[in-house]
């Protein structure tokens, strides 16, 4: 067991974990942050995307011990004081989700994308989401949602970490 402490969605947490525990398992099983989900075992799907020290990562491909001392933001920490993040709002507005399983990862990656590039072209959006798979939407409305959020100036409102 290794002792770790970190900040997750604004709260400081500390636990003894097996070194083999993945960050996504730590979030789900220890912290009950089940909003972050697991869709694959090769780190291709992006469903588990969270922000680690302000940058998007696939939390299935990070050990919990590697996140010791870090700040993590999950889909559950994105809304501030009950107000949805503009990207969350945009996904609903543009029907950017169906079953919703890819959605936490898609939203977290979209926020990262807009943080780095507040007014992306359609092509930049599509490339920026290449690490996230969705089986339901055909991506059309996900792209619309990111465009919609960009038009609302989401990056200023939605800096995380």
């Amino acid at each position: 067991m290794t002792r770790i402490s970190l900040t997750v969605d604004g709260a400081t947490v500390a636990d003894d974990v097996e070194p083999r525990m993945l960050l996504v398992q730590y979030l789900r099983e220890r912290l009950g942050k089940t909003g972050t989900v697991i869709g694959c075992d090769t780190s291709n799907c992006g469903a588990c995307t969270v922000h680690l020290d302000g940058q998007s990562v696939k939390s299935c491909n990070v050990l919990a011990v590697q996140a010791d001392g870090a700040t993590v933001t999950t889909i559950e920490g994105l809304a501030q004081n009950g107000t949805l993040h503009p990207v969350q709002e945009a996904f609903r507005e543009c029907h950017g989700l169906q079953c919703g399983f890819c959605t936490p990862g898609m939203i977290m990656q979209s926020v990262d994308l807009l943080n780095n590039n507040p007014s992306p072209s359609e092509e930049e959006i599509r490339l920026g989401l290449e690490g996230n798979l969705c089986r339901c939407t055909g991506y059309h409305n996900i792209v619309r949602a990111v465009q919609h959020a960009a038009a609302q100036g989401s990056s200023t409102a939605g800096a995380t970490s």
Partner: peptide, 17 residues
């Protein structure tokens, strides 16, 4: 706009796992 989205976009979900 869909009723079910509020839960899904905030991670307040109940997947079997």
């Amino acid at each position: 706009r869909r009723k079910e989205d509020q839960r899904l976009i905030t991670g307040r979900t109940r997947w079997t796992d």
